[in-house]
Amino acid sequence: MNIVVCVKQVIDTEAVITLAADGSVERAGQTLVIDPYSEFAVERAVQLKEEQGGTVTLLTLGDGDCLAAVRHGLAMGADGAVLIEDDAWLERDAAQAAALLAEALETMDADLIMGGWKSGDTAAAQVMGRVAARLGLPWATMATACDVTATGLRVQCEVDDGVEVVDMPLPAVVAAQQGLAEPRYPSVRDVMGARRKPVETRPAAAFAAAAAPSAAVVASRALKPARAGGRIVEGTTAEAAAETARLLAEEAKVL
């Protein structure tokens, strides 16, 4: 089975974030890691390869700095990678990112496309669904289990207060939720081996999708105003209840 995993690189989830003057997150000096949701997908993909045979290829939209995440995925057991090199990748919205990834995937002949259901930084949860739509493939998201069956895949998806088990034919798109697989810790042997695995770099400029403008443009960013302290109404229960009702009616005007 030929599996392609879309991998994003993000700032370490424990990092202390500082904001630039325009309100965007300062990336300089930050530890960059493979996105945790991408990592779940890579792990399951490598497991499926180990079970079923085939190949795992990573697909990343980003700049040269993102190679660290790619190398990590290769050390985990992926066989090769494609980097859509794009210095403007951080400015691209989810629709553009999905368009670029889908265009690359058209020529990659994947039986299964995987990725994180959202990313640890922007958490838009848009890209994998849009990729599936663009390629016209069935899509399962928030996957916590993914197994190969005689007819395709059986995927367990997290839904509110439960799980949904879906069967789908291949090719398909599966977006990983935490719990899909516990990512392995690559050994030094794996890390060394990853240095020799092929990484194909394809400039974004060569993609038709790169020319399309962003569907949404960020106008400005601002922090949420600090929460004002609440008020404590004192007195006996009956008095406090009456006073609270009065405040809700007269001051907050919600009653």
Binding site: D12, E14, A15, V16, T18, G29, T31, V33
Partner: peptide
Amino acid sequence: EHNGNPWGVGWQT
């Protein structure tokens, strides 16, 4: 690896 301390607290702190 990521934060240079065993607890994983942001290295900047």
